[in-house]
Amino acid sequence: MSDPSETRDGNAAPNASGAKPCVNCGCAGKGTGSRVNGDARRGFMFRFGAALLGVGGAIAAVPILGTLLAPARRQASAWVSLGSADAFPAGQTRFATFLNPIRQPTDGDAAKTACWVRCISPGKFQVFAVNCAHLGCPVRWFAQSRLFMCPCHGGAYYEDGSRAAGPPPRGLFEYPWKIDGGNLLIEAGHLPGLEQST
């Protein structure tokens, strides 16, 4: 602060006229030349400090915003096995579970995921998410009436997943599937939902 070499006369213009009251002490502009130079120096120091804060803050903001906003990024889904395709008898709809391929060490049970597998005929499947297309509650399959029913708001779906009744705006969400080495694989990851932006 006291290093005179930092003073730059050229920057002292605003108060140099001496007509205005001094900001710091209200001494009616009767300050000496060094007072004027001091004001200029302090103004510069403030701006310099602000610039330093700005640079530092911008750098620090990268990890802050980065971690906060990272979850908005879409992650790639992955193929995951539901076990042997033969375990799903033709004409029936069965409950199956898998561990979500996108999971964190702290997820606990929450990484477990359920789905409904409908085997239309040998080698031909439909795999539905348990999440109701209305508000995501878990739908249950009733083999007798061949309906999926949702416990939350009474949505109902036919066995092919199409909407049968109630508030859902569409049919059940389906996972892409394939048979590999006799196993039924589905492509899973994100919590199923209305994915308009993908």
Partner: peptide
């Protein structure tokens, strides 16, 4: 999807 990701802190409801 982005808002949902920010809400859940990830692609699924988890840790």
């Amino acid at each position: 999807n982005q808002v949902r990701g920010l809400l859940l802190g990830g692609p699924i409801i988890g840790g």
